[in-house]
Every structure is written in C-alpha cells, then in structure tokens.
Nucleic acid binder design. Sequence first.
DNA 1: CACTGTGAATGCATTCACAGCG
DNA 2: CGCTGTGAATGCATTCACAGTG
Lengths: 237, 237
Amino acid sequence: MTNALPFKERRAPGFRTQVPEVCVTRLSLYLRELTRLNRQQVRMVSSRQLAESLGLTDVQIRRDFNYFGQFGTSGRGYDVRKLHDRLTKILGVAGRTWNVALAGVGHLGSALLAYRGFRERGFLFRVAVDTDPRKIGQTIQGLTIASASQLAHRVRQQQIHIGLITVPVESAQTVCDQLIQGGVRAILNFAPIHLDVPASVHLRTVDLAVELESLVFYLVHPSPDTDSRKNSMVNGA
Amino acid sequence: MTNALPFKERRAPGFRTQVPEVCVTRLSLYLRELTRLNRQQVRMVSSRQLAESLGLTDVQIRRDFNYFGQFGTSGRGYDVRKLHDRLTKILGVAGRTWNVALAGVGHLGSALLAYRGFRERGFLFRVAVDTDPRKIGQTIQGLTIASASQLAHRVRQQQIHIGLITVPVESAQTVCDQLIQGGVRAILNFAPIHLDVPASVHLRTVDLAVELESLVFYLVHPSPDTDSRKNSMVNGA
DNA sequence: CACTGTGAATGCATTCACAGCG
DNA sequence: CGCTGTGAATGCATTCACAGTG
C-alpha cells in the first residue's frame, strides 16, 4: 500500500500509454488461466505458479500486473477471483459481449465461426458475408450469410465492434475499407497481405504461412547451443 | 564490398546465432513479396519500395538482409530474382518440400488441410489423425484420417518434419509429446494452452482467442494520440 | 519466510545519421 | 544523386537484485 507514487501520475486517464504491447497480449493469457483456477476452486495463486503453467517468468508476470496497480499480497500471492475480476475489467471483457463480423466464409472463415473459444469469451458473430452466390442465404452456425456488397451496411446496422477478414488477398484491402467504413475499429486479418488502415483502427494480422515457414528456418539452422524460449543455460559451466 | 568485417567473424557456421527472432518471421514475408514481384516481371526493387508494400521501414529491411550478407547494389536496390533465390535458401525452402502432420481434424484442422497457402509454399500434409471413430478412415483433401493412437508411428514412418496441433486443450500436451516422440522438431500449436517441449524442439503457438481479446483492450482504452504501428507523429508540432 | 513490487542493469530491436558506392 | 550498408543512439522488454510487507 505505497502511499506516494513518485512520478506514476503520468499515467493518463485509462493508463494505456505506458503498457507494453506484449503485456496486453499476455493479459488475455492470464485471464484464461485465472478462469481455469477459479473453476478448480483455487483461492490464491503466486506469480511463480502462474509463470510455471503459462511458460513465463514470475517477474514478468508481477511487472505486467503492476502496470495496472497493486493486486497482490506479500507472502501470499494473488487472490484468484479478485485478480480475475480486475483483469476482465482492464481487458474490457467484464460482463459484456462484443459483436463480430466475418468477411469470407471459406474453410478458415467457417472454422472461425464454429470456434468455441470465441463464444466462450464473449465474442458473438452477428454478420457473415461472402461473394459466392451459392453461399449467400445459407445458414451456418445459426447465422445467415449475406452478400459482401452489404458488408459496410450490415456492420453499421448491427453495431459491429470487430471485423475478421478471411477473404483472398485480392479483396482483403477492399473488405478492410468497408469494415472501417461501417464503423469497425479493430480488425483481425488472416489474409496474407499488409493492409493499410488509419491510425485510429487497430489491426492485427495472423499469417499462417509465415508462422509455418519461419519455423523451417530453425530446422535448417539448428543452433549450436540447444535453444528455446526458456532456460538457455548459456553462462553455466 | 567491405573488405574487413571487424568482429563479425563471430557468426557461427550457419549464422543463426545473431539473427533476431522477428527478422526470421519477416524473412518469410519478404519472400512472398519477392515472389509476387517476380511474377510481375519486376527486375529491381529498393528497400523503400518493399517497406511501403509490407508496412515496414526501409532501414529495418536493409538490416534484416544484412544479417545474411550483402545482396544489394548502391543506388539501384536489389535484384528481385537474385534476392528471392538467396532468401529461399536461407529460409530453407529452396527447391524442396516439407512433410507436415496434422493432429485433430476438427473445423480448424480441416481448414488448415485445405489452406492453399501451405501447399503453395511447399508444405505437404502427409498424416492426419483424430480420435473420433467416425472420422477415422475418411478421406479429406486426398488424405486418409488415421487413428490418433497411430500418431507417433505414422510421423516416424512418413518422415514428418513439422506437426500442427488442432486438438482440444485436454489432449494437446499428449499429442505434442507423441509428435516429438515420432521425431518432429518443429510444431505449430493452435490449442490455447502452454505446451512443454524440450529445448531442441521449436514450438510456436497461435492463440486465436488471445489475438481477438487483446484487440479489445485497445477499443476500451483508446490512446490520446491516435496510435498505430506506423508513424505516430509524436514529436511533430 | 514466502511472497510482492520495483529501481537499476542488461539485452534485444528499431531508428538515426551518415559514409560510401554505382 | 538514389540507394545500400552500418556504427552509434535510442527505445522497448526482460531480468537481476533486493527492499519491504503480511
């Protein structure tokens, strides 16, 4: 319960500024683990225990939490339920849902529509569009596929918060623009191409081929010391 | 054509050591863009042009290339074809294919089996397994689904290089171990859980729910200055 | 004493600034 | 010039080391 934070005032209303990008990603990871622990009736958890199950370091975790305040008890660890509740609020997923639109109902798009992990965490598909006339009008996962020409309109109408792009590269930028035009401010893109978005829109690209291909590099160039993200034991005797 | 590299000798046979992790990921990105340019008969390309189309900076690209040698011509840029050939060799995808095994033929698994981006870049699915008796024996994308109990065996038999995991969290670690037991040294995991692997195995996890959820943070905490990965224009008047 | 919280040190990656080449 | 290649400076993230607390 430190009473004077020297120069931490600089935290703007809604902190945001100081928080490392990576930390935000990990927040979601923490949240999932805490949900698990909660289900298992676990009351308290230490940063070390969390680190162990998530493949991180304890300091990393304590520092991540610290960007948002002091949640822990010295010598005890963290109250699972309390921490969970705090983090859901910080992440913005506390007691609410988010509306999602899917552009492109191909193999990957269909898989995402069916992905339980999304619904579990409060992401609801409200719009799905495709250009294929045979698909338009079909119902998948309880959602009727609309025409791609309707995208911007539907997105606005349904108050969509987040857009998922699973269309071929040729149409990805167009679809992206339409999502933004419809008011979307966060986009998860699976098309293997760089998309231009205004600074106010948050874009994240998951490039499956790149993920796979970059793994190959390490197969072809095995490191002398056997590496990994964890202990590399370099300085040891 | 610098004649003496002061202390760059430290590059071990097969460089690997010095190369930033992020750079390796980008390598694959460069390669795809160069393939595109090649198809369009473009002869030369500058780091700035590449930067523009990939959403990176020119210096970043030049430095990335430099980890592997000098490929460019001052005042001219890079020879597209030559650079492409060099990078395919460095990445380890030059004139060869890689055998892939898929564990878990659910929605996502099926989508990956069908994903053209993989085949295009020389990744061939040779094994697919599932635990569901109704799926075993079925053929999908020309591949017959085997029983999960066969995994390690098939992987060894088919000389699989890379494993993809799209099974539920409960079985992910087991499947992972079996892949490794079968001789796999690179794994792309889609199960939303941390997997333990020996240091000699390269693991990458794509966590779809985390990708989506972490986007929400930025919706809830909009930054004062409108941010983005590109020009933030902070210091400007 | 087992744990959190955090300055200070280190390590990794990007950007700046510019020498040098075609 | 236009562009590459690269030391030096900066910025971002992790790790170390330890003071402080229940």
